[in-house]
Structure formats: C-alpha cells, structure tokens
Amino acid sequence: MDLLIPSTGLLFWMTIVFLIVLFLLWKFGFPAIVNMVNARKAFIDDSLRKAHEANEKLANIQQMSEALLQEARQKQSQILKEAAQTRDNIVGQAQEKARNESARIIAEAKAEIENEKQNAIRDIRNEVAVLSVQIAEKILREKLSDDKKQMEMIDRMLDEVAVKN
C-alpha cells in the first residue's frame, strides 16, 4: 500500500466510524459537558454577585445600626440631662417652699408668744394690784386695831394737814 494514496477501505471505515463517533458525541457527549460547565460558571458568577450584594447589605446594616446606636445614645444623654434639670428644679422649688413655710410658722409662733406674754403681764399686774390693796387693808387694820392708835393716827394726820396748811 502506498504511503501517500489514501486507501479505499480505510477511507470507507474512517467515514463510517468518524460519522458515528461524531453523531454520538454531538448527541450525548460534548454539549452535556460544555453546557454544564457554562451553567456552573454562570452559577458561580451569580453566587459571587449575590455574596457581594449580601456583604454590601450587611455593611449597610452595620452602618445603620451604628447610626441608630449613636442616635439612641444621644437621646439617652439628653433625656438624662433633662431629668436632672427637672429634678433640680423640683428640689429647688420644694426647698423654697419649705423655707417660706418655716419662716411663716416661726413668725406666727413669735406673734403668739408675744401675745401670751402681754396677757400674762397684764394678768400679773392686776393680781399685783389686788394683792397690794389687800395687803394695805390688812396692814391698816393691824395698825388701827385699838383706839389709841386710831387717835394717834388721826392726830398725825391732822398734824400733817395742819403743817401743810
């Protein structure tokens, strides 16, 4: 068989065999594999994209939560400040009120005491007057118990009157 002339038999078998192989591989072989590889590539790309998006979303959420936290903290401190102010106000007012009240009570008490003192002094004065009259009566009676003394008294008194005149 010559090297450079294609032999009929070989060509015949090659045609049959190659066409069968081509048909089988075209039908069942390569497209299945190639399509699957492409599908997998698409799937991987899609997954990557999704993961990227999810990451971005997560970052956004984190940022948002950070901001929220910050805001909450600010609000908290503001509320605390307000509360402290209110408390100080209330305490101040109460103190003021208490001071006024106590001052009033003290003044009233002072006035009462003064009143009572005046009353007591007046009472004592009356008593003292009555007592002194009674004492003077008693002393007079003692001194004028006999006639002689009475006479003497009258004499002295007359003397005194006389002297004066």
Binding site: L24, L25, F28, G29, F30, I33, M36, A39, R40, A42
Partner: peptide, 18 residues
C-alpha cells in the same frame, strides 16, 4: 474515545450546576 467522553458526560447528566 467514546468511553472517555460518554462516561464523564453521564456524570454531567446526573448532576446539577450547583
């Protein structure tokens, strides 16, 4: 050749892209 291609191709028909 057919074995080398069709046996792996069978794997692909029985699997999903994921």
């Amino acid at each position: 050749l057919l074995l080398c291609i069709l046996i792996p191709a069978r794997w692909y028909r029985h699997h999903k892209a994921s």
